[in-house]
Amino acid sequence: MFGWLWQKNTALSAVVDSFSKTAFPSAATSVQQAPFLVLDFELTGLNPKKDHIVSMGWVPIRQQEIVLAEARHYLISSPVSVGQSAVYHGLHDHQLRQGLELSTVLTELLSQYAGYVFVAHHSQLDEQFLRTACQRCFAKTPRFKFIDTLKIEWQRLLRQGKVVKHDALKLPSCLQRHGLPKMANHHALEDAYSTALLLLSQLKPGGDNMTLADLYLLSR
């Protein structure tokens, strides 16, 4: 009677295994040739141990071009009420009842973007939630490689001798500094798209010679 559950768990586990076996681009790869996937999550809170992802957006970048045809935005059903977090992301419990299961969205993500370098603004938080989500859904977590546009911007400002003021590293401030369009804040897809624009702007000074190794160094 539990055969269907065993088959489902085995299939989900295989998704993680396949992702883990796919090699990332070498550190010597030019950033112009590296495939990136820019991610953003909206959350019920900031603690990955007790809070949950309620929406997910992503935008691929290949050969330094944003692939809008593959941009995705999903509402995700939550096992808990969004509570006061609705003030920030504007999503409410009745909307999330129509959302997808987290495992469904993660399966698409891991199946289609194995071998991609993931990108986020303040990536430490997103990576923690992604790892926790994989552990909850698959009982295992693959290895990810993340680039953090917030840390890249911090390094850029320091090299220019500028004092990094309060809120200077928030996404809207970074977009304004780079002359990029303003977007609605706290919408997973729009924030992912904005972060993709920011990354491409940050990569310009590196020119043709910039490698993933250089980018990882800037993102530490």
Rank of each mutant, 00 (worst) to 15 (best):
R62T: 12
A114C: 05
D93H: 05
S194Y: 10
L102W: 04
G207C: 06
T44W: 06
K162G: 00
G99Q: 11
S81C: 11
L199R: 10
V15T: 09
E101G: 15
L43G: 01
Q33A: 15
K145W: 15
R220T: 09
M56A: 15
I53E: 04
L199D: 03
A71T: 09
H187L: 08
I66Y: 01
G99K: 06
T107F: 12
P60C: 07
L39F: 08
L171H: 03
E101Q: 15
G90D: 11
L212A: 02
A28L: 08
E42H: 07
Y74I: 05
A69L: 00
L198G: 03
F19Y: 13
H186T: 07
K140Q: 15
A114N: 05
L37Y: 07
V119C: 10
L158D: 01
I53K: 02
V80A: 11
Q95F: 07
E127Q: 14
W6T: 13
T132W: 04
L217F: 12
K140T: 14
K165G: 04
Q128S: 15
L37D: 00
I66W: 00
Q155K: 08
Q64C: 08
H166N: 10
S85E: 01
K8A: 10
L197E: 12
Q176Y: 14
G115T: 07
K49T: 09
F146W: 12
Q98N: 14
Q135V: 06
Y74H: 14
S55I: 04
M210T: 06
D126Y: 12
T149G: 04
F36Y: 13
Q63V: 06
H186W: 13
L150E: 07
T22W: 05
N47Q: 11
F118D: 00
P172W: 13
L12W: 13
R177Q: 02
T10A: 13
F36G: 00
E101L: 15
V82N: 06
R131G: 08
F129L: 07
L158K: 13
S78F: 11
L158V: 09
K151Q: 14
C137T: 05
R72T: 03
Y88P: 00
R97Y: 07
L157V: 01
T29V: 14
K182A: 15
